[in-house]
Design a protein around this nucleic acid. Structure first.
Lengths: 203, 203
DNA sequence: ATATTTGTTAACCAAATGGTTAAACCATAT
DNA sequence: ATATGGTTTAACCATTTGGTTAACAAATAT
């Protein structure tokens, strides 16, 4: 079928582009390599996506729309503060195992092109901190946690969860462990990080 | 003087290369741009550094040799555990203000080329975790801090301090703050992060 | 003084790269 | 069967890019 073939090709290109862009970044990626991975002629890339820049943006938006729900688990989930910290910490590692290059890719390309953020803000479902802020304020008022800025707490949660993946090669070298031990270390963090955070803030 | 001129040019090239490579990465950097910034002819880059790869490696090693002492403040400083956490947290932000692109650059290029780590390990002064590990073990034995793996604690300290810079554009967007407010937030972290860590581990 | 080594440049080169074109292919509607 | 529309390809193109060359300039050694 024409329609099916079309969608297949278009999706095949996007998938190939995701792999290449996420591993090599905008600058390191080659259109020919994406075409090879998608097993199509290079001209087809332009037929469907016009230019490298537009293909890249499609990949980036798609990547961010996978990351956003993860962040929303902290920012806009209904569960109790401690519970959501535990849940996020536990589920995030699963997410990264499924998309190993994604968080690094998003952060890296955002750093290289900070104005890019604008294009995301307008997007549906862009995470906001308001609800989380209210939740932290309430928890403080109720005497459940020590006074802390919601922004700082949020940064801490994200930092403790994302950084071990962003800094993997550096940390592996500093800790002098191989890939297998490091993976074990990351698994141990599931139990460790939530405790660490909760200990830091609970009264 | 020849000697002076030579060293001047060579250093001028390295400085220009640092700026360009650290901002644009290996793939995004252009030899011509580096030459322009150093105000010399492009051929001189090759005269002094042979190839883009070698020039890049010189920049990378130089960058890492600036970062290493920072990490050693956590790993190999003689001061008391709580004190060194406070000192590191406080001094790290000053370091990053002086070298804004450096940590991101090191982590990014290490991710893109993990075998690169080998070239660093052999380097003089490469940080190791042994001393810190002993210190944590002792502090636990003395009942000063709760049981915790030294590796996890180290990752946490580095994560909480590095991530706000690595993820700056992302965090600015999520927190919906401008550059000025974000800088203020980072300043506030000087007081906040050490407390956060110490609260999490002290008995 | 002059030969020699070192530093610097303009011009050049081959390969790679993003992008285009024109023709072929192929499913479907008439 | 055939005209029509979107889909796919091989060949091509202009530009960019890392790197080289040969000649010139400047310093140092003899």
């Amino acid at each position: 079928m024409t329609k099916e073939k079309l969608e297949n090709t278009e999706i095949e290109i996007l998938n190939a582009a995701k792999e290449i862009f996420q591993q090599k970044g905008m600058d390191g990626a080659r259109m020919q390599e994406i075409a090879d991975k998608a097993k199509i002629n290079k001209a087809l890339l332009h037929y469907y996506y016009r230019s490298k820049q537009l293909l890249f943006e499609a990949v980036f938006k798609s990547a961010f729309s996978l990351l956003a729900p993860q962040l929303n688990k902290v920012l806009n989930d209904d569960s109790d503060l401690f519970e959501k910290i535990t849940k996020f910490t536990d589920s995030y590692i699963t997410f990264v195992i499924k998309h190993p290059y994604l968080p690094n890719f998003v952060i890296q390309e955002l750093n290289k092109n900070p104005d890019f953020v604008m294009k995301l803000r307008s997007q549906e479902n862009f995470p906001t901190i308001d609800k989380f802020k209210q939740q932290v304020t309430d928890a403080i008022k109720e005497g459940i946690i020590k006074p802390i800025e919601a922004e700082q707490l949020f940064i801490n949660i994200i930092a403790l969860n994302l950084f071990p993946f962003l800094g993997e090669p550096l940390l592996m070298a500093l800790l002098n462990v191989d890939k297998k031990s490091y993976t074990q270390l990351l698994q141990d963090r599931k139990a460790h990080v939530a405790d660490f955070i909760i200990n830091a803030i609970k009264i």
